[in-house]
């Protein structure tokens, strides 16, 4: 019981404290590549803090759905984070079959984000909603395949055990599959968090983007919650990638946590580098790439089935 409460506090602390930092690291990396100074590392903290203190402007066409989007967008990553281990810190909640719940939890936030976007009646936001639901439709099978690979290797059906102690030994026995799903999971993280090459988090008005366009009409605390929720979602999916990448333990809890945080920051730097050197994909190429990724994860599963 005591460990569960400890895990819960550590989880919440990491989630609330660390999540906005990652976006700052990405921004700094990109600025370095472009030869700029860039915004401070803690910029997102300032932004969220500022937005929480501001008033709101709400479109006249909207209903309660519009306000529900940010609420769900914050609550879902919060709950989802409790199902997964943060590096060495085990998941506070785990049960057999929680991987399915985890996937559908994100479906819930997608449902409300898309509906909130459509609620404004603007064609821009409608466009974003379409893209969000369509692309994630192709990313979902990948997530399931990745989880099945891990379930097969660990012999368990809860995320805590799948990303748990057995992962380190699995790297010895099934390195190729794990390598492939690491790539796939990383790409899913990029898709779900709307990073380049799938979406450009910096543009606001080009017809190329997905997530940013859906939240055009949100303002004040609502926008703050959306930003915070997006950062948390990034942390949650990123934590899975980092755990897959750094499965081992040193035996020292504090050191392990530091390693995990280091891994997260490293991932943020990698994403920053990717965003600096790559262009956004053409929109029509995205479904192709996503199908390719799901096929890759399918193939990694076939390697194990043999």
């Amino acid at each position: 019981m005591r460990t569960t409460i400890l895990q819960l506090f550590l989880h919440l602390f990491l989630l609330f404290g660390l999540s906005p930092l990652l976006s700052g690291v990405i921004g700094k990396t990109k600025a370095l590549f472009a030869g700029r100074v860039g915004p401070p590392l803690l910029q997102l903290y300032f932004d969220i803090w500022k937005l929480f203190g501001k008033g709101m402007v709400i479109s006249r066409t909207t209903t309660w759905i519009f306000r529900a989007g940010p609420v769900v967008g914050l609550a879902v990553p919060l709950l989802a984070s409790l199902l997964i281990p943060f590096g060495p810190v085990g998941a506070p909640i785990s049960f057999s079959g929680d991987l399915i719940f985890f996937v559908y939890l994100f479906g819930l936030s997608r449902f409300f984000t898309a509906c909130a976007a459509l609620d404004t009646g603007s064609s821009f936001e409608g466009m974003g909603a379409v893209r969000e639901v369509t692309f994630s439709c192709l990313a979902e099978p990948t997530l399931f395949f990745v989880f099945i690979v891990l379930a097969r290797l660990s012999g368990s059906f809860s995320l805590d055990a799948m990303f748990g102690q057995t992962l380190a030994t699995s790297w010895h026995t099934a390195a190729p599959s794990l390598l492939l799903i690491l790539v796939c999971l990383f790409i899913v993280t990029l898709v779900e968090n709307c990073r380049i090459p799938f979406d450009d988090p910096n543009t606001h008005l080009e017809l190329t983007m997905i997530h940013e366009v859906m939240v055009l009409d949100h303002s004040g605390p609502d926008l703050g919650m959306i930003l915070y929720g997006a950062a948390m979602k990034f942390l949650v999916l990123g934590a899975l990638v980092v755990r897959l990448f750094l499965p081992g333990t040193t035996g020292n809890m504090a050191l392990d946590i530091l390693l995990f945080i280091g891994g997260l920051l490293f991932m943020a730097v990698v994403i920053g580098v990717i965003e600096s050197v790559m262009a956004r994909l053409r929109l029509l190429r995205i479904p192709q790439l996503l199908v390719g990724v799901s096929l890759l994860s399918f193939f990694s599963l076939i390697l194990l089935l043999r």
């Binding site: 008033g55 066409t61 605390p221």
Partner: peptide, 12 residues
């Protein structure tokens, strides 16, 4: 949080 600020209605 909304209690602090004002909520203005405008068109989309």
């Amino acid at each position: 949080r909304q209690g602090r600020g004002t909520v203005a209605a405008a068109s989309t």
